[in-house]
Design a binder for these strands. Sequence first.
DNA 1: ATCTTATATTCCACGATTGACATGTCATTA
DNA 2: TAATGACATGTCAATCGTGGAATATAAGAT
Lengths: 189, 189
Amino acid sequence: MSLRHALLGLLGEEPASGYDLLKTFEDSLANVWPATQSQVYGELARLAEAGLVEVGAEGPRGRKEYSITPAGREEMRHWLTRVKPAPLAKRSEILLRVFFLGQVAPAEARAYLRGQAETAERRTRELATMKESVERKEGDLPAHGLMALEWGLRFNAMHAEWARWAESRIREETRGRPPEAARRIVPGG
Amino acid sequence: MSLRHALLGLLGEEPASGYDLLKTFEDSLANVWPATQSQVYGELARLAEAGLVEVGAEGPRGRKEYSITPAGREEMRHWLTRVKPAPLAKRSEILLRVFFLGQVAPAEARAYLRGQAETAERRTRELATMKESVERKEGDLPAHGLMALEWGLRFNAMHAEWARWAESRIREETRGRPPEAARRIVPGG
DNA sequence: ATCTTATATTCCACGATTGACATGTCATTA
DNA sequence: TAATGACATGTCAATCGTGGAATATAAGAT
């Protein structure tokens, strides 16, 4: 139920209409917490009903500008600072994949890992560029957007390094007996 | 829909009953992909219907031993090696939090980050211990469990480092003017 | 005899998510 | 003037993933 907090967070920066928020979800939040129209409008209504946000005067074409209420800030603060062990990510598809990577032929596993490394390296470079441009001229990001960016940067760098390491491990293990290991995934093998 | 692949993956290692699988989900997969009874049995039925697994002879107390079929292995292989950009994590609650961390008082933000660092450091140590014990005597983990473990290790180390870095950044920024910044979250402020 | 563990199965409810649909306004431009 | 496209808000139905709980029975241990 974190869509709620995403909305509260954005409204905590500045008041906005549902449409504005939708735009933000398509841009800066697309890779962090995607959401669709029905979700945004629905959740905004629920938030208003709960008194966490309020609607101002109606604008040009029925536009409703929402702003956060004190109760909303309080809720946001609870969510942001709760001491709970913070699961760091309850479910991880990456890990699930790696867990079973031994079930495909070594060559395929290595190809997968190389792909992971390349993707992560590319993203690392992209994020590094973004970081530099943000550091020069401000404004695009909410206050702590840079920290989020830095996290993404480090994450991708770590993932890339790990993938390279894992690939080399498989290479070591299967050295000298390349073809027969492929039998592992032959149907009925 | 990755519960499906978690089950296929486990059955790819060796045949098992729903009950066995459930145990695995409580142990080794608890932090990677948790699942409950209803999910496991339900999905097993669907998998059998789809021909990705098959049931052997009935055991002692109605026990049904499931094993993976060639079609199941094929599906698993597709899932494992698909070239798709592999979103690395579609939604990230961590990032969402960080994004809005500027909305609470610096002292609270720093406390939160310290908590994150401490948790991640503790997990890093735990995983390091596990890794050592696994490296000595084998058997507890599926083939590539060690790689998954290594990933978790590196992830937590990275997260801890980042949190320390972020906390020190906030400390730098707010040096010299401690109390007034707290007003940012005062209701109505 | 009774308790515990093993084992399978079903049902419900909730929230998240998607995608399609419906409706209307304002500004530009053909 | 009419058409278009960006702006703007909403609803509905359907599905899915998830979690919780109830039910049932049988084997093995005490």
